[in-house]
Design a protein around this nucleic acid. Structure first.
Lengths: 341, 341
DNA sequence: ATGAAAGCGCTAACAC
DNA sequence: GTGTTAGCGCTTTCAT
């Protein structure tokens, strides 16, 4: 059985409150008493019981991270970053996968599990603007990714619209005029897909290019397999195109695979750009030009904002932080070939 | 403030113990009392306080998962699976990243954090056979991946040696004789690298091929970047080779990238095989032949074994479960080209 | 079938 | 400076 405060007190020959004082660095403890207590703690290998501390303090020392799924490299790399930052603050991370499913996302907000953490980092995908009310929760909550809800909820966002616009303009600057989009979600407005398509349209418009429905292909979850299927659909349509914008890197890489199998030269015949800058993008053949949405930045800021909320007493005003993006040019849009570039 | 047992009791007009009885489905509760209590629970939105329950019961309802890093696709996909299975059992997962570092792995075994979960799934990388004693812990522990320690610790292993041998034999069967290895860890015996190299050597021997040091290239963490660098080293050595065995898929894909940049044709000039069967292997160009080590199986079995240990009272004997592997043939060793094959 | 009481290990107010 | 005391919300034992 693990040692308790009382055990330590007994060994040190003091009351257990004095032990507590030592642990919490209370000022009023005589140096030698402190030393004696420390020795007893060492001797017994005492560690404070976290359940008891939680019960008493109402804090768990954990934060939740709810993402669609770790099998998507973007979220895996995000989780890596979140765990690393949280760890530096002595906080553990409890990961939940929602599958991007609206029902499960609502559950993540209200479920029993919220009791097991002091706050939640939430990357929603399935929620719509009708669900804004569900985000009015009584625990610290920071939304990741999109800036889609108006409620008084903290956000750490990427510049979806602006970045997608820049990505499209990168293609246009390379002389492309018939730019296909892979991974749209029909009718969606406020999710990543909707926002990125909006950026795409804005770029076209700014450059006097017409928006053509037949160049836009829907895809479900943003996995390679769906990027590949969407590209096959596009080819089946028989429309001409000279560039592809994959709404994330995995879609773009799935599409790339299909293009190459059909003997398209990339980037000569078709240029491709992705979104996310996952590690793999550097190593594909050809390497993938993409948008770095500042994932590390997002993770770091989000964790710190959440911890601040958890620690803070005063209900600070809603905050919204945006991480800067940048276009990472690689071979798929014509950058010279270098390993790991 | 959240409702407590007493609040419910008051609303239902019973003692709070009766409420507890209802919650725990104790048999001796009059049906109508039960109904009244249930109504009160609903009305107040009562949920049992987990900290209090933990303090009392000694259970947290969480399990830990310690892996090197989620940025490695294998571990991300493993974590996905573990979380999914644990969720089905009503258990949450707390992820720790060790970076494969020995010190941090030892910390994961002894740290304060062990109190926050009821048991640990542990995928060690940096620990050596000298550390076997550290695995003698007083909480439920299941080791994932290698079968490297003799102590009375449960393992769910993959067939590293046998699978690596089969991978090598797959290359030999394709007529390859000069098979390079990417990702070895010099001097290692019991880790994944050591075991897979052992399987490689066994295959060579069985087929009368000589082991050649100059074909084996070390690499640090098993990321693409290190696979690429190792391949460059190999090329710099100027030795002839007609096949490459990447000790994991990411190494193989990094190596593939470099080979292609140097105008090697894959698989005509050089065949490549990886290990892990991450999603990406299906979509690379060419797609990557690899070993499916039964990751889903490992995750499912490991979680269930751990939960059984946690729930069990009697100290059951040490168990070791092996998940079957299979070679997944794709283009990089000459399978015909198909999308997503 | 229901209730009273003790205590899990800790924290924090308040006394000494 | 140090000690006493009263809970946090729950489970469990024992009585009624």
């Amino acid at each position: 059985m693990a040692a308790t405060l009382r055990d330590v007190a007994q060994v040190a020959g003091v009351s257990f409150k004095t032990v507590s004082n030592v642990i919490h660095n209370h000022p009023h403890v005589a140096p030698e008493t402190r030393a004696r207590v420390m020795a007893a703690i060492d001797q017994l290998g005492y560690r404070a019981n976290r359940s008891a501390r939680s019960l008493r303090s109402g804090r768990t020392g954990a934060i939740g991270l709810a993402v669609p799924e770790l099998s998507l490299a973007y979220f895996a790399e995000l989780a890596d970053e979140v765990i690393t930052v949280a760890d530096a603050h002595g906080v553990v991370v409890l990961i939940e996968q929602t599958g991007g499913d609206r029902r499960r996302e609502l559950e993540a907000l209200s479920g029993d599990r919220r009791q097991m953490s002091d706050g939640l980092l939430f990357s929603p995908l399935g929620l719509g603007s009708d669900d804004a009310a569900a985000l009015q929760v009584d625990f610290p909550l920071v939304l990741l990714g999109e800036r889609i809800f108006d409620g008084p909820v903290d956000h750490v966002t990427m510049e979806n619209v602006e970045a997608a616009r820049a990505a499209t303009e990168h293609l246009i600057a390379g002389g492309r005029r018939r730019i296909a989009v892979i991974g749209a979600h029909e009718g969606e407005r406020i999710g990543s897909a909707g926002l990125r398509v909006a950026g795409y349209r804005a770029a076209l418009e700014a450059h006097g290019l017409d928006y053509d429905d037949s160049l836009v292909v829907d895809a479900g979850p943003w996995h390679r397999v769906n990027g590949a299927e969407a590209m096959q659909q596009l080819l089946a349509r028989g429309v001409a195109f000279d560039a592809v914008f994959g709404l994330n890197d995995e879609l773009a890489l799935g599409a790339l695979r299909v293009l190459r199998m059909h003997e398209f030269r990339v980037p000569q015949d078709v240029a491709i750009i992705g979104f996310d800058d996952i590690d793999e993008a550097k190593y594909s053949l050809p390497s993938l030009t993409t948008v770095d949405p500042g994932r590390r930045e997002i993770a770091r800021i989000a964790v710190e904002l959440l911890l601040e909320r958890i620690g803070g007493s005063a209900p600070a005003p809603r905050r919204e932080l945006r991480s800067p993006f940048r276009i990472v040019q690689r071979e798929s849009t014509g950058a010279p070939v270098r390993v790991g570039a």
